[in-house]
């Protein structure tokens, strides 16, 4: 088991945002976490990355309890996130943004980022044409590619993606998900949070459904695509791709 959340509770002031979330991610999987706005999807990812404090419960990564570890240390352990809204550094160029992704790397691999740049530009050729452009001037799709590429620069064991499809045209969405599948094929474990449930379920191995801070369903992704409740709530009663 690469990642395990065990009865995790998180509070914003007095409001309980996560009410005992338990989930697991195995090495090599794509796991989707779907749910409506405000269900606690982003909070879950932020908690895994250490941006939100756990009130109770455990977060384990590769056998180690990381629930109270500062966020920057978790990146060193191999957890990297492309956050909601992409979090591109607007004043930095594409190359500088990618370099930030490699910030946490230590020792001999710190300066040796050439292969990683090649890999990112191969996955996202659009970025290669915009190397010196500042992040703020990119289109939404390019920013999303940059956010994922930047996370890859850290050579993560676990890649967390928060709503990679947000605000993108359908064609771009399928392109992004194709690349996510490709990244997974290259050996990176992925936990993806999505409102666009159709794509997220089609591409994932397993999925969890989150409602108001609780996991209400957990099953192989394919079977959730056929699930009547899920179809009614998240797929608009039909399956799109």
């Amino acid at each position: 088991m690469l990642l395990e959340l065990d009865d995790v509770r998180v509070h914003y002031g007095k409001v309980e945002a996560l009410k005992g979330v338990s989930l697991t991610v195995e090495e090599g999987e794509i796991v989707s976490l779907i749910g409506a706005n405000g269900a606690g999807k982003s909070t879950t990812l932020k908690t895994i990355s250490g941006l939100r404090k756990v009130s109770s419960g455990h977060v384990r990564f590769a056998g180690e309890d990381i629930g109270h570890m500062p966020g920057h240390r978790r990146v060193e352990r191999g957890i990297c996130q492309a956050p909601e809204g992409r979090g591109i550094f607007p004043g930095m160029s594409v190359v500088e943004n990618l370099e930030m992704g490699a910030y946490a790397r230590r020792g001999s691999v710190r300066g040796d980022t050439e292969d990683d740049f090649d890999r990112v530009f191969q996955l996202f050729p659009a970025l290669a044409d915009r190397k010196s452009q500042t992040g703020g001037t990119l289109s939404g799709g390019e920013q999303q590619m940059l956010a994922i590429g930047r996370a890859l620069m850290a050579r993560p064991r676990l890649l967390l993606l928060d709503e990679p499809s947000m605000g993108l045209a359908p064609k771009l969405v399928s392109q992004i998900f194709e690349i996510i599948t490709e990244i997974n094929g290259q050996g990176t474990t992925i936990l993806v949070v999505e409102q666009n449930a159709a794509q997220a379920l089609a591409r994932a191995h397993r999925a969890y459904v989150l409602e108001t801070g609780r996991i209400v369903k957990s099953a192989p992704a394919r079977s959730l695509l056929e699930d009547d409740d899920v179809r009614a709530a998240y797929l608009g009663g039909r399956i799109g791709t």
């Binding site: 966020g71 920057h72 060193e76 956050p83 979090g87 550094f89 607007p90 930030m100 946490a104 850290a154």
Partner: peptide, 11 residues
Amino acid sequence: QDPETAVLMGV
């Protein structure tokens, strides 16, 4: 520019 994302980069 963005302290939360900076943490996600390992800063």
